[in-house]
Structures are given as structure tokens and as C-alpha cells.
Design a protein around this nucleic acid. Sequence first.
DNA 1: GCAACTGGTTTCGAATCGAAACTTTAGAGG
DNA 2: CCTCTAAAGTTTCGATTCGAAACCAGTTGC
Lengths: 182, 182
Amino acid sequence: MGGMREPLRELVNCGLPQALEVMGERWAFMILRASFNGLHHFEEFLSELGIARNILSNRLAKLVEHGILKRDSCADDRRKVEYRLTEKGFDLLPSMLALRQWGQKYSVECVENPVLVDERDRLPIGPVSILAHDGRILGPHDLWLSAREQVGIRTDGSHAEPTETVGRGDVVDLISKKAAAI
Amino acid sequence: MGGMREPLRELVNCGLPQALEVMGERWAFMILRASFNGLHHFEEFLSELGIARNILSNRLAKLVEHGILKRDSCADDRRKVEYRLTEKGFDLLPSMLALRQWGQKYSVECVENPVLVDERDRLPIGPVSILAHDGRILGPHDLWLSAREQVGIRTDGSHAEPTETVGRGDVVDLISKKAAAI
DNA sequence: GCAACTGGTTTCGAATCGAAACTTTAGAGG
DNA sequence: CCTCTAAAGTTTCGATTCGAAACCAGTTGC
């Protein structure tokens, strides 16, 4: 498909910057992880992560503001405040795990214990993956950018692009070529 | 199984902080995304993202240092430098997409055009997912933390824990209970 | 009433970010 | 060879953010 590559500056207009606005800040993912691990209180986060008091306060407020955590005073002891994940917060689990797995894969010491397993058979989970609509696992070379109105249509008349998709380095160019359709 | 929750400060000793050391910095993911989209040169990144010159220089150096990008002088024009994703860099695609999809899901305006599709049938890809070893898609409630040496063993004699796993809020506690096994 | 606990705010020095100017190396043209 | 320009950085300096420590304010338990 014609490779003009033109503007493509609308790149900035996708979900990534939105996500990074909150989760791109220092400590955001660590706090999220602590939440996933069952921490709910200010002082717990404080002692668990080595974060500064004011920064933690700031980050928790921002996470609440963005609807990732919700803040409730404990009924029984109104000194205490509970921070809990919302649905939106839970939806960050794949992002968090993908990042974690990547970090694990490429760090020498990192034995991972305890191991995150499937609750059903207690076997370790697999890698977080990009899936096709039908569940096939997709790699970088299986991806294509398609104009919104041409979704589902294979527009290759002249020669088959897919065979162009050889070697990982090409993937990016294939993607970017199609991106000119913005 | 007992839920002592004790130290668990070894949380910090997993892949996440490792990953965040590089990718937690401002702009890191945006640069990565630009790379995935086929940008290779300093001035391209510079004009595409709205990043400052010195910061871009700094970030690229750090990404190279961490083996996410590799830096090569162009043979034909030795003024030019090429930044290209390494294998390690490509392995960040699931993280990046997961983040992007999350941002998209929770932002009002974000129509996503062009759409990332499966190259085979040109249908939009599904959500980046946590998979079991056999490919089943796992949600937060399907996860369990198991001591390394007990992987594959269901240690529930008395009563079935899985039924405890009701409602999302409980997941985190289940996880953290098991985390005491560190 | 008073000490202790929880969850903050304030303050202030250190590190980081970002815009703009400056530097360096390499090709292009004459 | 000499100049002009492009590419990729560096430097500089003001503005922002981070982080440690001190301070503050409601609760609760005694």
C-alpha cells in the first residue's frame, strides 16, 4: 500500500499519551502493584514502597482523581482511609504484568518467588499477549494498520504485502507506511 | 496458605522496578512508539513528538544503553544516525499496546484511525491479555500466587479457595495472602 | 484530658525538564 | 579548497518536580 509516510503526527492523538498522563509518572505503577497486592492504606504504601510522604499523597490523589483508585474513610476507624482499585484500575493489570514480565525476562537476578499462577491448575501463567479477534497470538509481524473504513478488507491487488513482512525490522516500516492513511 | 502478609517488601525485587527504571521515564514509551512506527532518526523523533532536544538525546542514549534501541551511523551519509529497535525493544510491544488500549478504552475522544488489525484477516486485534499456559484468557480472579516449589500443586485440603475468589476486590487480598510465602 | 496513630501539608535544597543558543562532524556545490 | 547547510548533539539557564524532614489536624484509646 502506498508508502507516503506523510504527517503521522496524529500519532500523539491515541490512547498512549492519555495512559501516560497518569501512569507515566514516577511511582504510579509501583503504587498500582501494591494495590493489586492488597495494600489499602497510606502508611502501608509508605513503608512498602520507599516513596516520600508528600509524593505518595500527591500520587494517590492523582490516581483517585483519574478513577484508578477510590478513596473511602473506614467506617470503624475514621482516622483510616482505604484506597481500593476501581474497575478502571483493575483494567491496568495486563499493562502491569506485561511490563513486569518484560523486566523479568531481561534482568539477570529475578527468580520470581512466589510465582503468579493460573488459579485452576496452579501452573505459571504465560506471557501477556497480543491476540487476534479469534484468539490467535499475534507477533509484531502479524500486525497491520488499516484505515478505519477498510477494516476487514484486504486491499492488496498487485502483490502480496504480507510476504514483504519479513524480518522484524520491516514491521515498523509496514506499519508506518499504512499510517500515512491517517 | 495462612495469610500472614508479613514482610512482602521483596515486592520491590521483581521485574517491575527493573522495567520502570528505563520505561518509567517521561517520553520513553512515546519514543518507543515512534520507533514501532518506523521512525529512525533524531530529527524525526524531534519533530514528531514535541520533546526537547536535550531530553531526546538523553532518552535515546538511555534506551540504547539498556539495549532497547541500537544506534548505527548510516553508511551512505555518516552525518545520519539510525536508531532501531532490538529484540528486547520489540518485546515491549505488548506492554505498549496494553497501555495504549487502556488509554483508549477510558478516553472519550480517541477514535483510533488507522486501526491496528490482524494482517491475516484485516480485522481489529483483540485486547492484550493475560494467558494461562494453555492459552485460556485469564482475568484478575483467575490468578494465584504460588510458592515456587509448589507450582502445579493444589494445596487446598480443607475448603476450596477458588470459591473465595468472589468479587474483584477479593482478588488482591487472595494474592497478598499468598504473597506471605516469599 | 492526653498520648499515640493516621493521613496528610509545608518547607526547602537537590535533581530533572525544557527552550534556546551553541558546537561538531559530514556531505554538497562551486 | 572554501563555504553553506544538514544532522545530531551539547551547554546554559530558568522553571518544575522530587524527596527528606518537620509540622499539623482529626480520631481513638485510656
